[in-house]
């Protein structure tokens, strides 16, 4: 099963490689990983999307917790978090397909951020499932390049991660 894990880390030298090592050294899979500073000085937040059976996920979470620079690990089981991702997509857009691309962009409330006579570059944000859906529709029209940020996640409700 797929899990989205948020990891709050000290913004120290080597943290990213410690986390990456933990996954690669044990053959755990990473689907996506993002990291950036938070509102708190010195604190960064990673969002890791990974998969595996429950026992492996429990081991991953414990191992992450054990790393010295990691402050908190939150495993968002289904539904407890809102997830968003951004994709930048370059699609072929010539003649009749130009209108079709615009229609799709419109339906998904995406944006055109660069135009040439032969292509559009699109910025799409939303739940990763929504990104998958728009890509599905764009693919037949000619996907030239795709960049995804990977998911970021935040818990639902009024409480912050500190409770």
């Amino acid at each position: 099963m797929q899990h989205t894990i948020s990891v709050l880390v000290e913004n120290e030298f080597g943290v990213l490689s410690r986390v990456a090592n933990l996954f690669s050294g044990r053959g755990f899979n990473i689907d996506s990983l993002t990291v950036a500073p938070t509102n708190e000085e010195g604190l960064s937040r990673m969002t890791i999307v990974t998969r595996g059976d429950e026992q492996i996920l429990e081991q991953i979470t414990k191992q992450l917790n054990k790393l010295i620079d990691i402050i908190k690990v939150i495993d968002f089981t289904d539904g407890s978090a809102i997830e968003r991702e951004m994709a930048l997509v370059k699609v072929t857009a010539e003649d009749e397909s130009r209108a079709e691309v615009l229609r799709i962009v419109d339906i998904f409330r995406a944006k055109i951020i660069d135009v040439t006579p032969k292509s559009y570059t699109i910025e799409a944000t939303g739940n990763p499932v929504k990104i998958d859906a728009i890509l599905e529709l764009l693919r037949p029209l000619g996907l030239k390049e795709l960049v995804r940020t990977g998911a970021v996640a935040i818990g639902r409700g009024a409480k912050g991660w500190k409770g």
Binding site: F13, G14, S17, N21, G25, I68
Partner: peptide
């Protein structure tokens, strides 16, 4: 050496 020993140290500092 920090990279080499990362999997076999509890922690390391440069």
């Amino acid at each position: 050496i920090i990279g080499i020993t990362r999997p076999c140290t509890k922690h390391s500092f440069l």
